[in-house]
């Protein structure tokens, strides 16, 4: 594929504490429009790697470029700008407890500054996709774990992000709901050429799009083909 790289890591080292690296001097690149799986044992640093992609953890050494932005010295304003183009599904969902389902899904649209009508329409559409119509006015804590996860999914897709970063997006879902989620991610990837990076424990069988697979172990990232 000749399309340009949206994520480039060169000798990337990630650590929470000095001298305790979670990811060690790893290099890889993810091209625009790719569908990428990241797997690895629990505690291997999958979530940590995603954190560095959305700028919550700065590289300790090496270089990391996201959408052409150097993440080592990124300024808050630039980071906020970059994050508008990301759609993130967190392992612990990170829904806003004080907000209704509808408002949670609307968050990226509000940040992008869409009109109220567009926000409403888009939110309704997505909630239908994740089969949560009728729960618009619920609060996150009134939902089951799987339902919360689907709200997080809808929120991540709401603003048609350029890159989707999903941390175990089907971790809490039954088979049917999981298929719906994979379908949505595939749809975004196929129709909108969205780059999708998914952390998961098991790659779903019979996926329709081509994908790449990174495996993390002992701080190193391996590409499996």
């Amino acid at each position: 594929m000749g399309s340009k790289s949206v994520i480039i890591a060169k000798d990337l080292t990630l650590a929470y504490k000095p001298n305790v690296p979670i990811i060690r001097e790893s290099s890889f690149r993810i091209r625009s429009g790719e569908f990428v799986f990241i797997t690895g044992p629990s505690g291997s640093g999958k979530s940590t790697l995603l954190k560095s992609f959305y700028g919550e953890l700065r590289p300790q050494s090496g270089a990391l470029q996201i959408g052409g932005v150097m993440m080592e010295q990124i300024k808050p304003a630039k980071l906020a700008f970059l994050r508008k183009y990301l759609g993130i599904i967190f392992q612990d969902y990170k829904l806003i407890k004080e907000w209704t389902v509808k408002k949670n899904v609307m968050l990226p649209l509000l940040i992008a500054g869409y009109s109220k009508d567009v926000c409403e329409a888009q939110t309704a559409r997505l909630l239908k996709h994740v089969r949560l119509q009728g729960k618009e006015d619920y609060y996150p804590l009134e939902l089951s774990g799987g339902e919360q996860q689907r709200v997080a999914m809808a929120r991540a897709l709401a603003h048609n992000p350029v890159i989707i970063l999903a941390d175990e997006p089907t971790g809490n879902l039954d088979e049917y709901s999981s298929r719906v989620i994979w379908g949505l991610l595939e749809g975004a990837n196929e129709q909108l050429r969205t780059t999708v990076v998914v952390v998961t424990h098991s790659i779903p069988p019979n996926l329709e799009v081509p994908y790449k697979h990174f495996y993390i172990e002992e701080g190193k990232i391996y590409e499996i083909s």
Binding site: Y54, E56, L79, A80, F81, L82, R83, K84, L86, I88, F90, K94, L95, I96, K97, E98, W99, L107, P108, L110, I111
Partner: peptide
């Protein structure tokens, strides 16, 4: 803090 942190993760400007 939590709400503002989540908003920040989605790129909300300070005023928002």
């Amino acid at each position: 803090q939590e709400r503002m942190y989540i908003m920040a993760l989605f790129g909300a400007p300070l005023w928002m």
